[in-house]
């Protein structure tokens, strides 16, 4: 169970901000990883705002997530430059390897798969990001090898 008491402190920080909800949600997500039901219910209770309204904002912005994410977030570019350099096959292979669709999280909680829009690295397309690392010039095999590495590291830390 996450430590919901922290939400109180976060809300307090924005006490004087005129429309604080987005800032609160940003910090709360940073703290808890995702805007899950218990987390947002607590935000609603403390801010005295209706949960439906808060949930509406949380689902409106793509930067917010209501689903807990995996330890590593894999973002594949799906814009045109990557597309013409075969990003589709790369993505297909990643999906097969992780057994995920876009937006999903692996059962072991290690990976979440998402799209990203152009990262400005079209020179080395196709590109993917894992957390804050960028990997370019991908082939389907190379992408899987990279993810295997993360998996090995992930289980040795665990």
């Amino acid at each position: 169970m996450p430590d919901l008491a922290k939400i109180h402190d976060i809300v307090k920080v924005y006490e004087k901000t005129p429309t604080p909800l987005i800032y609160i949600l940003k910090d709360v997500q940073k703290e808890f990883g995702a805007l899950t039901e218990p987390v947002l219910s607590e935000v609603a209770r403390i801010t005295q705002m209706p949960l439906s309204e808060i949930y509406g904002v949380a689902t409106f912005y793509s930067l917010f997530t209501t689903q807990p994410k995996g330890k590593h977030v894999v973002r594949c570019c799906n814009n045109a430059p990557c597309h013409v350099r075969n990003s589709k096959e790369v993505l297909q292979k990643i999906k097969e390897y992780l057994q995920l669709e876009i937006g999903g999280t692996t059962a072991d909680g290690l990976f979440t798969l998402e799209f990203t829009s152009c990262l400005g690295l079209c020179a080395v397309a196709p590109v993917m990001m894992v957390d804050n690392e960028v990997y370019g010039n991908l082939t389907p095999e190379k992408a899987v090898a990279i993810l295997k590495d993360y998996k090995l590291k992930g289980s040795s830390n665990a």
């Binding site: 209706p50 949960l51 439906s52 309204e53 949930y55 509406g56 689902t59 409106f60």
Partner: peptide, 8 residues
Amino acid sequence: SALGMEGR
């Protein structure tokens, strides 16, 4: 406020 608009 039982109901809300969600997503976009």
